[in-house]
Measured scan of single mutants.
Amino acid sequence: MDETGKELVLALYDYQEKSPREVTMKKGDILTLLNSTNKDSWKVEVKITVNGKTYERQGFVPAAYVKKL
């Protein structure tokens, strides 16, 4: 869990989004878990840094590609 009590997951593999509802992640990324009720895909939040500014983006990733921490 992070400092706000949200559950975290670790990306086990790289994943490139295939639709606007998904998010891209790299192996080793730590993501905030938002919903894990679907056995196939979990909703997560990723933090992306562009030019020194951090943005948050929500979307789905394959459940088999992440592990709860």
Rank of each mutant, 00 (worst) to 15 (best):
A11Q: 01
K39G: 10
Q58H: 07
K18P: 04
E7S: 11
L12K: 03
L12T: 03
R57T: 06
G28Q: 00
V66A: 02
T4C: 15
T4F: 12
G52T: 04
V66G: 00
E3V: 14
V23K: 01
V61P: 00
Q16A: 12
N35W: 06
D29T: 06
T4R: 14
G52N: 07
V61Y: 00
L31R: 01
E3H: 14
V9W: 04
K47T: 14
E56M: 15
L8G: 02
E45F: 06
I30P: 00
V44Y: 01
S41F: 15
T49F: 11
L10P: 00
V50F: 08
L31Y: 08
D14I: 06
V61G: 01
T49I: 12
L10N: 02
Y13N: 07
A63I: 05
R21K: 11
E45M: 15
Y65I: 09
E22R: 03
A64E: 13
N51Y: 06
K53I: 14
L12H: 02
D29M: 13
E7P: 09
G28F: 04
K26G: 03
D14Q: 02
K68S: 08
E3K: 14
Y13V: 12
S41W: 15
D14H: 04
Y13P: 01
G59I: 06
G52Y: 02
N35E: 14
Y13C: 15
K67R: 12
L33E: 00
E17N: 06
K39N: 10
V9E: 01
L8M: 09
D2P: 13
T32D: 03
Y65W: 06
R21Y: 15
N51F: 06
K27A: 11
D29R: 02
S36D: 15
V66C: 10
K43L: 15
V66F: 07
G5I: 13
K6H: 13
V61T: 00
L34M: 06
P62S: 04
E7V: 14
L8C: 15
G52D: 07
K26Y: 09
A63Y: 02
K47I: 13
Y55R: 07
V61A: 01
D40G: 08
T54I: 12
Q58R: 10
K68I: 14
V46C: 09
E3N: 14
S36T: 09
L34A: 01
Y55F: 13
I48H: 07
V46R: 08
K27W: 04
T54D: 08
K47R: 13
R57I: 10
M1C: 15
A63P: 09
L8E: 06
E3A: 14
Y55H: 10
Y15D: 01
L69N: 02
N38R: 09
